[in-house]
Design a protein around this nucleic acid. Structure first.
Length: 571
RNA sequence: GCGCUCGUAGCUCAGCGGAUAGAGCAACGGACUUCUAAUCCGUCGGUCGCAGGUUCGAAUCCUGCCGGGCGCGCCA
């Protein structure tokens, strides 16, 4: 039995595993000689060879020489002995085909590295990832899916890269709605709390009474005043309500396989005490203007419907604080108290203007000093088959619990066992959300996301389970990798591409790059599996292929884990 | 009206300054006395919305137009 367990050796320095860097280092001197200046070799993977360099194309223009001539000269001056073969191709590309030995050496290093070639960040940052952030008075819907899934994947990835990640669940746990909710609660058993799982029904009932019953409406308003004034009895009721909602949310997160816990709640109520000071500080810096009774900031460059400056309303005309004030308070706290240097807000694209304004005001207030960045990690909407917002037939938003129930039921129908069905169903939904560019809308389609073949979660999970099954049946240990078949070579190169992809996700905050990579890796593995017998291969070849299987398994599992998708050992 | 964003193969999407624009699905044609066929290989399929411009080179950058989505003062 050969478990797909973590390797034992400490991470190496990584250079030998980074073929792009290796090739760049060997190409750079020749380029510098020809150009008489440093030139980025721009080594990329290529379908015409293992790697290519397009550096000559732009260089030739600057030198005023034909690109192919320059490429010939660079090729002739390059010392790639023992590493790769170089040839000029097309308009002036340098095609690089690696020798088998460096590939083998790199893959063997990779196999011995517990971190799969990804060194921990040399310059760790403290960053806050603000994600999920539902209103606690209502159940989770598909509307919360994207922020929760994308944010969790980014938090996992950045943490694994070695950064200090602070997860922030900016839940809506404060505001005028709580007056009516508390009054409704009192009318239905003073000690009671809303029944777990029926938050929406409770909210709707309270809302209906608020709209229809003037007496109830007045009581609710008074209750809001008492809540904001810190009335102890009111606060006790509010805390009970919030606690119950949190329990519900945590159960939902656990089912979704999301890493958010009790410790990550940082709701709007957290910042209430700081709001007067936020206003005072902004006013002190001359950033606030009174307009129609409200205190507003008017950051430059934002105009509204009539071409008039667009306000960011910090304090409402009734003296209450809006969400802009809370967002500003949270931002200030994250930079000042938490020491964050990178703030991520995983929030839907429609709020783009709002966040740009918040960041502009924060910058003007000096809360985003040099070296500290705030980024709106925007994402598109989930659409139904009709191309419109994904809703139920009656027009309501779709409950997340219902989506997961159906996903799991459909996974069961495919033949997955009970435990696997949960992993496959939830994984399919999450993968579908992560597989495309997050900025684009996508169409929610059961049949596509649960397809066993194609770019789907189930396909990746199957590839992993198949590897586990194979390794479980192996009776001897993996040995050194010696790629000989083209499919082994292709798989090895694919495995070596894991680290650059993970880094690019950390920089671009685009998990779909990792998803696409994993699909390519699983495809490469399938090609290898098809062409290269493992268990019935001769001893030395078997050891090599078992090592490739084990490494592919570890890479798939780690990659899926960074996406937040479970990888069961068997389906 | 102003602003943002998107328009790539029948469908769903990658690619976002470089070689004949890729993948998955669908369609069609192959490969199984299988190391789990929940697989693999091949074929078909695109004036990259339209028109200009910048560039040695544009799906990719700029401008305009057409079409869809979203946003534009006390909800978050």
């Amino acid at each position: 039995m050969t478990p797909v367990g973590p390797a034992v050796r400490a991470p190496s320095m990584g250079l030998i595993m980074n073929l792009e860097a290796l090739l760049s280092a060997r190409l750079a001197p020749a380029l510098a000689e020809v150009a008489r200046a440093a030139v980025d070799p721009a080594v990329r993977r290529s379908r015409h060879a293992d790697f290519q360099s397009g550096a000559v194309l732009s260089l030739a223009g600057r030198l005023g020489r034909p690109p192919r001539d320059v490429a010939q000269e660079v090729a002739a001056r390059s010392d790639l002995d023992g590493l790769a073969r170089i040839e000029v191709s097309g308009p002036g590309f340098l095609n690089l085909t690696l020798a088998d030995e460096p590939i083998a050496a790199a893959v063997n290093d990779l196999a011995a590295d517990a971190r799969l070639g990804v060194p921990p960040a040399g310059r760790p940052e403290t960053l806050v990832v603000d994600y999920s952030s539902p209103n606690i008075a209502k159940e989770l819907t598909v509307g919360h899916l994207r922020s929760t899934v994308i944010g969790d994947s980014l938090a996992r990835t950045l943490a694994w890269l070695g950064h200090d990640v602070v997860r922030a669940n900016h839940v809506g746990d404060w505001g005028t709605a709580f007056g009516m909710l508390i009054e409704h609660l009192l009318d239905h058993g003073a000690s009671g709390a809303p029944r777990l799982g029926d938050l929406t029904g409770f909210y709707r009932a309270a809302r209906a009474r608020f709209d229809a019953d003037e007496e109830f409406r007045n009581r609710s308003r008074l209750r809001v005043v008492r809540l904001q004034a810190g009335d102890e009895e009111t606060l006790r009721l509010w805390r009970g309500y919030v606690a119950e909602s949190r329990r519900y949310l945590l159960a939902a997160y656990e089912r979704l396989g999301v890493t958010l816990t009790e410790a990550h709640f940082a709701g709007e109520s957290t910042y209430q005490d700081a709001l007067p000071d936020v206003v005072a500080e902004l006013a002190g810096k001359g950033l606030l203007t009174e307009s129609d009774g409200a205190l507003c900031a008017f950051p430059a460059g934002f105009t509204g419907r009539d071409g008039e400056p667009l306000p960011l309303i910090v304090r409402k005309s009734d003296g209450g604080f809006g969400y802009a004030a809370t967002d500003l308070a949270a931002l200030r706290h994250r930079v000042r108290e938490l020491g964050a240097t990178r703030l991520l807000y995983v929030v839907g694209a429609p709020q783009r203007t709002h966040f740009r304004m918040v960041y502009a005001v924060a910058a003007a207030a000096g809360w985003l000093p040099e070296g500290v960045t705030a980024e709106h990690v925007a994402f598109g909407s989930i659409l139904g088959a009709d191309g419109k917002m994904f809703r139920t037939r009656s027009g309501d938003s779709v409950k997340l619990a219902d989506v997961l129930d159906e996903a799991i039921a459909r996974a069961s129908a495919l033949g997955a066992g009970p435990e696997a069905a949960q992993a496959v169903g939830v994984g399919a939904v999450k993968y579908a959300d992560l597989a495309g560019d997050r900025r684009n809308d996508y169409v929610f389609d059961w049949d596509r996301m649960l397809a066993l073949t194609g770019d789907t979660g189930p396909y990746l999970q199957y590839a992993y389970a198949r590897i586990r099954s194979l390794l479980d049946r192996a009776t001897d240990a993996p040995g050194p990798v010696v790629p000989c078949h083209p499919a082994e070579r292709a798989l090895a190169l694919e495995l070596l591409a894991f680290a650059p992809v993970v880094h690019s996700v950390g920089e671009t905050l685009e998990p779909h790059r990792l998803a696409g990579y994993l699909h390519g890796l699983a495809s490469s593995f399938s090609g290898f599996y098809q062409n290269c017998p493992v268990l019935r291969a001769p001893d030395d070849v078997r050891a090599s292929r078992l090592a490739l299987c084990a490494l592919t398994g570890r890479t798939l599992r780690q990659g899926l884990d960074l996406l937040g998708i479970a990888a069961p050992a068997a389906l």
